[in-house]
Computed example of a mutant assay.
Amino acid sequence: MDVLSDVLQAVRLKGALYFDVRTCEPVVAETPAMADVGAMVMPGAEHVISFHIMLSGECWAETIGSGNPPVRLEEGDIIVFPHGHPHAFVTHLGERNPPDLQFYATARGSSLPLMIELEEGGPKPMRFVCGYFGCCATPYNPLLQALPAQVLAKRPETGNHMEVDLIQAAVEEAGSPRAGGTTILSRLSELLFVRVIRRYIEQLPDHSRGWLAGLRDPNIGKALELVHADPCCEWTLEELARRSGLSRAVFAERFADQVGETPMRYLAKWRMQVAAGLLEQPGVPIEAIAEKVGYKSEAAFNRAFKNIVGLPPGAWRRGQRAAPGGVQA
């Protein structure tokens, strides 16, 4: 079981390219918090992530209000802001140019990605492409919880530069609209996200902690594969430890240290994420959902769901139907 792919499918990742920005130094470009514009750029998405790839030129990227230090963006670099922080791209650190929020509302109705030209013709041209990912944050998105305020994927010094190729292919696709173009653009940006996260995992320092570090740990990664391959199985701590090649005590300690959850708590939370997806399917009885995620009775499932999510499954389902873009019965 490919755990990362399973999570991305369960949280319904969806991508979109928005802006193809061409400018020159000096640059001062600010992106607002996704809490302010997320619903405009990705309607119906519970959580919105912004990303940018530098196709040419260089500048500083500052994540506003996160406490993260500025980072230098160069050609081929990609930066992702998983938690929706406002951020700025500047030639000179500290400069600001407050964005026009209404611009994001009007851009939605345009052909995407939208070309933006900002004072071209200077001695140092710059070009970067901006886009967004929409996903579910609740009941449980372990990937989102594991990511920092900013993820910088530096262009590799050797090897292929597929991420840049993906964006260039997407921009070319947008430049000559054809049947299926919107789907191609979405899939290309989603593939870009997977590539960036994969690169981020590979660049994690030794002895890193967190869900992403757990994926590359041979023993903990095996346990995660087992849980995601068969979440309805009656897993026990002893069985997961045995199948992962560790003693019960060592496994429990290492899993909690790496993932930040006990194995049984992680299993329960992931079951609720799977259940939430099933609850959004019209006409599926709650009793059947309980069985699909490993509970022998509807009452036991109701208690577990409320304990983790804060609402009974029936109330969760009604809330999702009432939300903008929610599934109707």
Rank of each mutant, 00 (worst) to 15 (best):
H92T: 04
G314L: 03
G314K: 05
G294I: 03
W60L: 15
G65C: 05
M272W: 01
V7L: 08
D230K: 10
L101Q: 07
D206E: 13
K154H: 05
C130G: 06
V90I: 01
I167W: 00
G175N: 03
G283C: 09
I167A: 00
K306T: 12
V71I: 10
H85Q: 06
E119Q: 15
V71D: 05
I184D: 05
A35D: 13
P313N: 05
T262F: 09
A315D: 09
P125G: 11
L55E: 09
L8S: 12
V259K: 06
R96I: 04
I78Q: 05
T158Y: 02
T236C: 02
A315G: 00
V327P: 12
V171P: 00
G283T: 08
R248A: 05
P142S: 13
E253W: 08
Q328H: 06
T182D: 15
A300M: 12
H207F: 04
E25C: 00
G245A: 11
G283R: 08
D217T: 09
Y200C: 02
L204T: 10
P70L: 05
P99C: 05
A107Q: 02
T63W: 02
L73S: 00
G121D: 11
S50R: 04
S244F: 11
C232Y: 03
S5C: 08
Y295D: 02
E234V: 04
T262N: 10
A223Y: 07
C24H: 09
P82G: 06
C24W: 02
E287S: 14
P312M: 00
V48A: 07
A107E: 01
M54N: 14
E117V: 09
G326T: 12
G94W: 03
E46Y: 00
V274F: 00
K222H: 04
P263M: 10
L191M: 15
E253S: 12
R195D: 07
Q320R: 15
S297Q: 13
Q320S: 10
L226S: 02
I289W: 01
F133Y: 15
N160Q: 13
L237F: 00
G84I: 07
A45S: 15
V48D: 03
P69L: 08
L166E: 03
N97C: 10
E157A: 14
E119K: 15
F128T: 00
I184N: 10
S111H: 08
T23M: 06
N307M: 10
P99D: 07
T183C: 09
R195H: 11
M264G: 09
G277E: 10
R303D: 13
P113H: 01
R187C: 07
L112M: 01
P98V: 01
T158V: 03
K306G: 02
S56C: 14
L212H: 07
F103Q: 15
A252E: 12
Y266F: 14
G221A: 09
E261D: 15
W211G: 04
R318M: 08
Q145I: 08
S66P: 06
S247Q: 12
